[in-house]
Amino acid sequence: MTSQAASATWTTRLRLPSLLVLAVVLVVWEAVSRRYGAYVMPSPRSVAEGLVAVVLAGDVWTHAGASLYRIAIGFGSALVVAVLLGLASFLWRPARVAVADVVTVLNATSVFVWIVVSLIWFGLTNMAPIFTTFMITLPVVAANVIEGVGSVDRKLLEMGQVYRLSGWETFRSIVIPSTIPHLVAGMKVGFGLALKVSVVAEIFGVTSGIGYIMNYSREILATQMVFVWALVMIAIMLVADKLVFDRMTRRLERWR
Protein backbone atom coordinates (compact mmCIF):
# COMPACT_ATOMS: atom_id res chain seq x y z
CA MET A 1 0.00 0.00 0.00
CA THR A 2 2.59 2.54 1.09
CA SER A 3 5.19 1.46 -1.46
CA GLN A 4 2.57 1.69 -4.18
CA ALA A 5 1.60 5.18 -3.09
CA ALA A 6 5.25 6.20 -2.94
CA SER A 7 6.01 4.93 -6.42
CA ALA A 8 2.86 6.45 -7.94
CA THR A 9 3.76 9.20 -10.34
CA TRP A 10 1.37 11.97 -11.34
CA THR A 11 0.39 10.07 -14.49
CA THR A 12 -0.89 7.08 -12.57
CA ARG A 13 -2.43 9.24 -9.87
CA LEU A 14 -4.56 11.04 -12.44
CA ARG A 15 -5.23 7.68 -14.11
CA LEU A 16 -4.08 9.07 -17.42
CA PRO A 17 -3.71 5.61 -19.01
CA SER A 18 -7.33 4.78 -18.15
CA LEU A 19 -8.53 8.18 -19.39
CA LEU A 20 -6.76 7.49 -22.67
CA VAL A 21 -8.59 4.18 -23.02
CA LEU A 22 -11.86 5.96 -22.23
CA ALA A 23 -11.18 8.53 -24.98
CA VAL A 24 -10.51 5.76 -27.50
CA VAL A 25 -13.70 3.94 -26.47
CA LEU A 26 -15.76 7.13 -26.88
CA VAL A 27 -14.32 7.82 -30.34
CA VAL A 28 -14.94 4.25 -31.54
CA TRP A 29 -18.41 4.29 -29.93
CA GLU A 30 -19.33 7.51 -31.75
CA ALA A 31 -18.04 6.12 -35.05
CA VAL A 32 -20.02 2.86 -34.67
CA SER A 33 -23.11 4.83 -33.72
CA ARG A 34 -22.88 6.97 -36.88
CA ARG A 35 -22.26 3.95 -39.10
CA TYR A 36 -25.01 1.63 -37.74
CA GLY A 37 -27.60 3.98 -36.32
CA ALA A 38 -29.01 4.83 -32.89
CA TYR A 39 -31.13 1.69 -32.52
CA VAL A 40 -28.08 -0.58 -32.63
CA MET A 41 -25.67 1.81 -30.97
CA PRO A 42 -26.97 5.03 -29.46
CA SER A 43 -24.48 7.90 -29.46
CA PRO A 44 -22.49 8.71 -26.30
CA ARG A 45 -24.28 12.04 -26.23
CA SER A 46 -27.79 10.54 -26.16
CA VAL A 47 -26.72 8.15 -23.39
CA ALA A 48 -25.34 11.06 -21.37
CA GLU A 49 -28.57 12.98 -21.87
CA GLY A 50 -30.60 9.94 -20.86
CA LEU A 51 -28.53 9.58 -17.72
CA VAL A 52 -29.11 13.20 -16.74
CA ALA A 53 -32.83 12.75 -17.44
CA VAL A 54 -33.29 9.66 -15.21
CA VAL A 55 -31.34 11.34 -12.43
CA LEU A 56 -33.38 14.54 -12.67
CA ALA A 57 -36.70 12.67 -12.92
CA GLY A 58 -35.78 10.52 -9.94
CA ASP A 59 -36.29 7.24 -11.85
CA VAL A 60 -32.78 6.24 -10.92
CA TRP A 61 -33.70 6.12 -7.22
CA THR A 62 -36.93 4.22 -7.87
CA HIS A 63 -35.33 1.45 -9.89
CA ALA A 64 -31.90 1.31 -8.24
CA GLY A 65 -33.73 1.43 -4.91
CA ALA A 66 -35.98 -1.49 -5.88
CA SER A 67 -32.98 -3.56 -7.00
CA LEU A 68 -30.94 -2.68 -3.91
CA TYR A 69 -33.88 -3.54 -1.67
CA ARG A 70 -34.09 -7.04 -3.19
CA ILE A 71 -30.31 -7.42 -2.92
CA ALA A 72 -30.39 -6.28 0.69
CA ILE A 73 -32.92 -9.00 1.58
CA GLY A 74 -31.51 -11.80 -0.61
CA PHE A 75 -27.82 -11.11 -0.07
CA GLY A 76 -28.36 -10.08 3.56
CA SER A 77 -29.98 -13.40 4.43
CA ALA A 78 -27.25 -15.26 2.52
CA LEU A 79 -24.71 -13.46 4.71
CA VAL A 80 -26.47 -14.42 7.92
CA VAL A 81 -26.85 -18.06 6.87
CA ALA A 82 -23.20 -18.23 5.73
CA VAL A 83 -21.96 -16.95 9.10
CA LEU A 84 -24.17 -19.46 10.94
CA LEU A 85 -22.79 -22.26 8.74
CA GLY A 86 -19.29 -21.03 9.57
CA LEU A 87 -20.05 -21.10 13.27
CA ALA A 88 -21.49 -24.61 12.97
CA SER A 89 -18.44 -25.85 11.11
CA PHE A 90 -16.14 -24.37 13.77
CA LEU A 91 -18.03 -25.99 16.61
CA TRP A 92 -18.56 -29.33 14.94
CA ARG A 93 -16.04 -30.73 12.50
CA PRO A 94 -18.37 -33.07 10.53
CA ALA A 95 -20.50 -30.01 9.68
CA ARG A 96 -17.52 -28.55 7.84
CA VAL A 97 -17.45 -31.45 5.38
CA ALA A 98 -21.21 -31.30 4.77
CA VAL A 99 -21.20 -27.54 4.31
CA ALA A 100 -18.25 -27.72 1.90
CA ASP A 101 -20.05 -30.32 -0.22
CA VAL A 102 -23.31 -28.36 -0.28
CA VAL A 103 -21.36 -25.25 -1.29
CA THR A 104 -19.75 -27.16 -4.16
CA VAL A 105 -23.12 -28.36 -5.46
CA LEU A 106 -24.73 -24.91 -5.14
CA ASN A 107 -21.77 -23.35 -6.93
CA ALA A 108 -22.30 -25.73 -9.82
CA THR A 109 -25.93 -24.70 -10.21
CA SER A 110 -26.79 -22.20 -12.94
CA VAL A 111 -28.47 -18.87 -12.21
CA PHE A 112 -31.15 -19.81 -14.70
CA VAL A 113 -32.18 -22.86 -12.66
CA TRP A 114 -32.99 -20.62 -9.69
CA ILE A 115 -34.76 -18.04 -11.83
CA VAL A 116 -37.06 -20.64 -13.37
CA VAL A 117 -37.64 -22.50 -10.13
CA SER A 118 -38.39 -19.31 -8.21
CA LEU A 119 -40.88 -18.26 -10.90
CA ILE A 120 -42.66 -21.58 -10.45
CA TRP A 121 -42.57 -21.34 -6.65
CA PHE A 122 -43.18 -17.65 -6.06
CA GLY A 123 -44.78 -16.51 -9.32
CA LEU A 124 -44.42 -12.96 -10.52
CA THR A 125 -43.46 -11.45 -7.16
CA ASN A 126 -40.59 -9.74 -5.38
CA MET A 127 -39.67 -13.08 -3.83
CA ALA A 128 -38.47 -14.50 -7.16
CA PRO A 129 -35.41 -12.21 -7.59
CA ILE A 130 -34.78 -12.23 -3.82
CA PHE A 131 -34.69 -16.03 -3.69
CA THR A 132 -32.50 -16.25 -6.79
CA THR A 133 -30.03 -13.76 -5.28
CA PHE A 134 -29.99 -15.70 -2.03
CA MET A 135 -29.29 -19.04 -3.68
CA ILE A 136 -26.52 -17.69 -5.89
CA THR A 137 -24.66 -15.62 -3.30
CA LEU A 138 -24.94 -18.09 -0.41
CA PRO A 139 -22.29 -20.56 -1.67
CA VAL A 140 -19.85 -17.76 -2.52
CA VAL A 141 -20.00 -16.15 0.91
CA ALA A 142 -20.22 -19.49 2.73
CA ALA A 143 -17.13 -20.82 0.91
CA ASN A 144 -15.17 -17.79 2.12
CA VAL A 145 -16.41 -18.04 5.69
CA ILE A 146 -15.63 -21.76 5.85
CA GLU A 147 -12.18 -21.11 4.46
CA GLY A 148 -11.70 -18.40 7.09
CA VAL A 149 -12.81 -20.66 9.92
CA GLY A 150 -10.52 -23.42 8.62
CA SER A 151 -7.55 -21.09 8.35
CA VAL A 152 -7.53 -20.08 12.01
CA ASP A 153 -3.96 -20.49 13.20
CA ARG A 154 -3.79 -23.65 15.33
CA LYS A 155 -0.86 -22.18 17.19
CA LEU A 156 -2.98 -19.29 18.40
CA LEU A 157 -5.71 -21.72 19.48
CA GLU A 158 -3.09 -23.63 21.48
CA MET A 159 -2.00 -20.40 23.11
CA GLY A 160 -5.62 -19.91 24.14
CA GLN A 161 -5.65 -23.42 25.57
CA VAL A 162 -2.49 -22.87 27.63
CA TYR A 163 -3.94 -19.66 29.07
CA ARG A 164 -7.31 -21.31 29.70
CA LEU A 165 -9.37 -18.92 27.59
CA SER A 166 -13.06 -19.81 27.66
CA GLY A 167 -14.72 -21.18 24.52
CA TRP A 168 -16.53 -17.89 23.97
CA GLU A 169 -13.36 -15.84 24.51
CA THR A 170 -11.48 -18.07 22.06
CA PHE A 171 -14.22 -17.60 19.47
CA ARG A 172 -14.42 -13.84 20.01
CA SER A 173 -10.71 -13.03 20.23
CA ILE A 174 -9.15 -15.61 17.93
CA VAL A 175 -11.65 -17.20 15.52
CA ILE A 176 -13.72 -14.15 14.51
CA PRO A 177 -10.77 -11.82 13.85
CA SER A 178 -9.08 -14.54 11.77
CA THR A 179 -12.24 -15.04 9.72
CA ILE A 180 -13.11 -11.41 9.09
CA PRO A 181 -10.75 -10.78 6.15
CA HIS A 182 -12.25 -13.84 4.42
CA LEU A 183 -15.77 -12.69 5.23
CA VAL A 184 -15.15 -9.21 3.82
CA ALA A 185 -13.61 -10.69 0.66
CA GLY A 186 -16.65 -12.97 0.34
CA MET A 187 -19.00 -10.03 0.87
CA LYS A 188 -17.26 -8.05 -1.83
CA VAL A 189 -17.49 -10.82 -4.42
CA GLY A 190 -20.97 -11.78 -3.19
CA PHE A 191 -22.34 -8.25 -3.51
CA GLY A 192 -21.04 -7.91 -7.07
CA LEU A 193 -22.65 -11.22 -7.91
CA ALA A 194 -25.89 -10.24 -6.16
CA LEU A 195 -26.16 -7.09 -8.27
CA LYS A 196 -25.56 -8.97 -11.51
CA VAL A 197 -27.89 -11.86 -10.66
CA SER A 198 -30.79 -9.93 -9.20
CA VAL A 199 -30.91 -7.75 -12.31
CA VAL A 200 -31.25 -10.82 -14.52
CA ALA A 201 -33.97 -12.21 -12.27
CA GLU A 202 -35.84 -8.88 -12.50
CA ILE A 203 -36.40 -9.37 -16.23
CA PHE A 204 -39.20 -11.75 -15.27
CA GLY A 205 -42.31 -10.84 -13.46
CA VAL A 206 -41.58 -7.68 -11.53
CA THR A 207 -42.36 -4.09 -12.55
CA SER A 208 -39.49 -2.21 -10.96
CA GLY A 209 -35.73 -2.55 -10.68
CA ILE A 210 -32.82 -2.04 -13.02
CA GLY A 211 -33.32 -5.39 -14.76
CA TYR A 212 -36.99 -4.64 -15.38
CA ILE A 213 -36.37 -1.14 -16.74
CA MET A 214 -33.52 -2.30 -18.99
CA ASN A 215 -35.69 -4.97 -20.55
CA TYR A 216 -38.60 -2.52 -20.85
CA SER A 217 -36.30 0.00 -22.58
CA ARG A 218 -35.33 -2.68 -25.07
CA GLU A 219 -38.97 -3.48 -25.77
CA ILE A 220 -39.84 0.16 -26.50
CA LEU A 221 -36.73 0.41 -28.70
CA ALA A 222 -35.07 2.98 -26.40
CA THR A 223 -31.60 1.46 -26.74
CA GLN A 224 -29.89 4.48 -25.21
CA MET A 225 -31.77 3.77 -21.95
CA VAL A 226 -30.37 0.24 -21.87
CA PHE A 227 -26.92 1.82 -21.86
CA VAL A 228 -27.97 4.38 -19.24
CA TRP A 229 -29.07 1.67 -16.81
CA ALA A 230 -25.93 -0.33 -17.47
CA LEU A 231 -23.95 2.73 -16.42
CA VAL A 232 -26.09 3.08 -13.28
CA MET A 233 -25.28 -0.52 -12.37
CA ILE A 234 -21.58 0.03 -12.87
CA ALA A 235 -21.75 3.17 -10.73
CA ILE A 236 -23.45 1.30 -7.88
CA MET A 237 -20.76 -1.39 -8.03
CA LEU A 238 -17.92 1.13 -7.96
CA VAL A 239 -19.43 3.08 -5.08
CA ALA A 240 -19.95 -0.10 -3.07
CA ASP A 241 -16.38 -1.24 -3.75
CA LYS A 242 -14.57 1.99 -3.03
CA LEU A 243 -16.75 3.54 -0.37
CA VAL A 244 -18.04 0.52 1.49
CA PHE A 245 -15.82 -2.53 1.11
CA ASP A 246 -12.41 -0.89 0.78
CA ARG A 247 -13.13 1.32 3.76
CA MET A 248 -14.39 -1.66 5.74
CA THR A 249 -11.23 -3.61 4.90
CA ARG A 250 -8.95 -0.77 5.94
CA ARG A 251 -10.81 -0.28 9.18
CA LEU A 252 -10.78 -3.96 10.10
CA GLU A 253 -7.13 -4.42 9.19
CA ARG A 254 -5.52 -1.39 10.72
CA TRP A 255 -3.28 -3.73 12.73
CA ARG A 256 -1.51 -5.06 9.63
Partner: peptide, 15 residues
Protein backbone atom coordinates in the same frame (compact mmCIF):
# COMPACT_ATOMS: atom_id res chain seq x y z
CA UNK B 1 -4.23 -21.67 35.48
CA UNK B 2 -0.76 -22.48 36.79
CA UNK B 3 1.48 -22.30 33.82
CA UNK B 4 2.80 -19.47 31.70
CA UNK B 5 4.26 -20.51 28.39
CA UNK B 6 6.58 -18.80 25.94
CA UNK B 7 6.58 -20.54 22.58
CA UNK B 8 9.17 -20.65 19.82
CA UNK B 9 7.07 -18.02 18.07
CA UNK B 10 5.58 -15.11 19.98
CA UNK B 11 1.96 -16.26 19.37
CA UNK B 12 0.62 -12.80 20.04
CA UNK B 13 -2.74 -12.01 18.45
CA UNK B 14 -1.78 -9.65 15.61
CA UNK B 15 -5.10 -7.77 15.85
Amino acid sequence: LHVGMVFQEDRLLPW
